[in-house]
Design a protein around this nucleic acid. Sequence first.
DNA 1: TCGTTTCCTGACCGTATGGTCAAGCGAAAC
DNA 2: GTTTCGCTTGACCATACGGTCAGGAAACGA
Lengths: 214, 214
Amino acid sequence: MSEPASLHSRPSRRNEIRLQNETIILRAAEKVFAEAGYGGATVQLIADMAGLPKANLLYYFASKEDLYRRVVQTIFEIWLQAAAAMDNAPGPVEGLGAYIDAKMEISRRHPDGSKVWASEVMHGAPVIQDYLETTLRDWTNGRAALIQRWVDEGKMAPVDPEHLLYMVWATTQHYADFGHQIQTLNGGKPLSNVQWQAAKTSVKSMILRGIGAI
Amino acid sequence: MSEPASLHSRPSRRNEIRLQNETIILRAAEKVFAEAGYGGATVQLIADMAGLPKANLLYYFASKEDLYRRVVQTIFEIWLQAAAAMDNAPGPVEGLGAYIDAKMEISRRHPDGSKVWASEVMHGAPVIQDYLETTLRDWTNGRAALIQRWVDEGKMAPVDPEHLLYMVWATTQHYADFGHQIQTLNGGKPLSNVQWQAAKTSVKSMILRGIGAI
DNA sequence: TCGTTTCCTGACCGTATGGTCAAGCGAAAC
DNA sequence: GTTTCGCTTGACCATACGGTCAGGAAACGA
């Protein structure tokens, strides 16, 4: 109530600082966790990457684990956004096509996040186990049912929906998680725009043909 | 020259002990590195898993890094064995089919090794970068040429060989690296024999159909 | 201007880690 | 029987880590 005139033009300077620093720290943390893993990452390393004193990080985030949890949750939310790409699609070509596009785009724009996610799952999902058992399981069951419907309607070959989803996840995330290997096999250079488009096209056409949708 | 009678029946007791302990230690190390990552793994943890005093590990292996290097190299050799499955195949159905089978079998039997490999690559391959640039690159180029030949001979659709290989790697290794996620989505239970067979069949049929080989 | 709240940070602390070492042990070689 | 040599291990060490804290600086409300 004591907030003056413009509610959005002045986020009170303090909140602005807080938000900005939290963003910087989270970005640095994502990178360091991706590069070194949770155990290999140190608060000092993240602080250096963020350009802030270590004690300042621990002013904004209670602990290294807390920071890690925030990073993982952020990635999970990005993951869920792409998940919506399958909604309201008339068939597998549109639905899975859009989903693959979205996931490839995430691999390109958030490779660090993808790596942190992969690492978290590989280590037994100590932080997001409950999400796996609730949100992810529900989403997967729902989409598996949708795919099964497409099968029943003769829009694609009778493939097991879950293994199809695993293939989509695996293939798209590979371009982020194993980006270093791909880059090495690409003569040491990152994939160009053209190469990314080719990758997208290749993946989509192989998968959609693989399920008899095209 | 002073070696008595039977050269193979008595590996001189001491070599036997050495070999046996090294094996135990390497097995324990693989598991701990897979579960905790390089940074999260401690020599003490590996020693406990192996049932030996910490100082004894460091008698057989000079350092934690040395131990890790040995684990990664072992995995790379297993990887290369499966790579031979594509050799001497008349076409993609036999060649890629056998390769996918072999890689799925590795995911099932060496999930820890697969995770260590994935982790190593994700962190920029600090230990096996030279292998990536030599052995892996040569192998990949060779197989890409082979696949291209199949394409030219009309045995499969004109797909980009490298993206096809990436898809095979990603999909097969997913069952090891993301085994925990798959298990969670499977009601918390590991895949049964039947489910593993179904996974193999699904992956093979989707990929082989995806490249127009069947 | 003054009091209050939030932000900032160098110095510090207990702990855990990778690695060392010296002394002991036991099987084999002579 | 004695010597040799690789194996074994508890104790130890320097370092680096996550986290704390006290006290100062800056921003804010009145």
